[in-house]
Design a binder for these strands. Structure first.
Lengths: 264, 264
DNA sequence: AAGTGGTCTAGACCACGTT
DNA sequence: ACGTGGTCTAGACCACTTT
């Protein structure tokens, strides 16, 4: 019709409805659409974008579910808030990628790294034989040069072999796995809790014992559902928090550093 | 075609694709489909359910996005895990509803309740005039009779009037607002952090000072996007945690009590 | 009563994984 | 080469909000 390749199907690499969603996001960021404004009806959007109604709906579904637009049956859609710069859908992949996207300098180094027998708990978390070996890595990560978190990650053997050969001060293991080895983190399960800073963590983070830490358990998966890593992360609670948003369907999730209040 | 009312549109109260999704969920729970099994193709499912392909896709989209099924282009879908009993999509509405759904006895009482001027921070969180009044409520909540969290909630005037007249030991304010006043919590933004137990919290929870607390900031919204409350909740970290799951689209989110490991 | 969004139909093409 | 899922078309009906 008026497209890259020619009519139907996915034309380029990005789906039509995702490009439409981005276009609407940009209109909101540019101020063409303000918070509280009504959105044009789906029918008229379909005409102006020259797509069928279903495609527009697909696009708007993304914006409704991440809380950018309201969505009630029969009611005109309204702009609820300005979407965050980096499409938050994609954020909860990697701390380093989040930091970079927000103009912060992520850093980190491996403190300890060794092969261990998985054991019951780790084995069931990443679905490997409890007797198989996993690579256990202890990392300290920093933001703009300041240490903010301790990370204790276990990789199944297949990934451990790849991670083992990476430089110890690599900025983003996740990015390296994606770019070089085509192993992409597609989702994760998380549990949030809290703990107080013990002796080892205090030394690693360079703070006094007794400080509150946000405890973040995480099992990351590929798109095929294969567990890629299990990690226990501990954040200095007054410096780094984790933000989650849940709507009808989608939840965005990302990090917040001290003083940031863009989320709530 | 062979439906409640007659062909098209939503027939009963629940959409066809949601019922199909539930049916597939049940097949997994019953063991008809085991973890790792391939799902029948969308085309054949469409035939057996007597719906059009798009409707099946809508159903499977739900299961893919909450991590129950895998979803890669061109690849047969597989069962990734057994979905949790209560559709986790719906859980992160209310602590009391989560507890009830899990067979636990939620409890709680209002410790303090008063009208205050909103102020800058609260005002911007729930989008009301900073000079307007809000009802600020301090609650202690329990699980099976054991105190587990402290809740400091601010309601805008419209809701505060309703909440004020509720009994102080009401099990679920959220349910009361939904059932009686038709005010439904549809989504929320959350920030997780940590803190240590101070004097007031220690007294309220009946524990010693210095214990780690999971700090949970929350702004809840209606489906129209209207902010309904802002709350700062503090959980005894060793007893109650919060679980989040994020996939391609959806994130489920709910609570976990001590010893539970169903999530990871 | 009119308009809008939510749901559904019955097809089609294409990218991708698998054979 | 084939099957599958992801995307898209061009319609329709119904529930709900708004006027």
């Amino acid at each position: 019709m008026g497209n890259g390749t020619d009519g139907r199907g996915a034309s380029a690499s990005v789906a039509r409805y995702e490009r439409i969603a981005d276009q609407v996001r940009n209109e909101i960021r540019n101020g063409e659409l303000k918070v509280g404004d009504f959105l044009a009806s789906e029918a008229s959007l379909a005409k102006s974008f020259e797509v069928s109604p279903g495609t527009v709906r697909e696009a708007l579904r993304l914006l409704v579910s991440d809380g950018t637009l309201s969505g009630r049956r029969g009611a005109r859609k309204t702009v609820l808030r300005i979407p965050r710069p980096a499409s938050t859908q994609e954020e909860f992949r990697s701390f380093a990628q989040w930091a970079t996207a927000h103009g912060r300098q992520p850093g980190g180094r491996v403190v300890e790294q060794q092969w261990q027998i998985a054991g019951e708990e780790t084995g069931s978390a990443i679905k490997v034989d409890p007797r198989s070996r996993v690579l256990r890595v202890l990392r300290v990560r920093s933001l703009d040069g300041e240490r903010v978190m301790v990370e204790r990650t276990s990789y199944p053997e297949r990934l451990g072999i790849l991670v083992e050969s990476m430089p110890p001060d690599l900025e983003s293991v996740t990015r390296e796995l994606a770019d070089v080895h085509d192993i992409v983190f597609a989702g994760a399960d998380h549990v949030f809790s809290a703990t107080v800073c013990g002796q080892q963590d205090a030394a690693l983070l360079g703070v006094a014992r007794g400080r509150p830490l946000l405890r973040h358990l995480r099992v990351s998966r590929s798109a095929a559902g294969e567990p890629l890593e299990v990690s226990e992360d501990r954040y200095l609670a007054n410096i780094l928090s984790v933000a989650v948003s849940n709507g009808r369907n989608v939840n965005a999730i990302g990090w917040l550093s001290a003083g940031e209040s863009g989320w709530l």
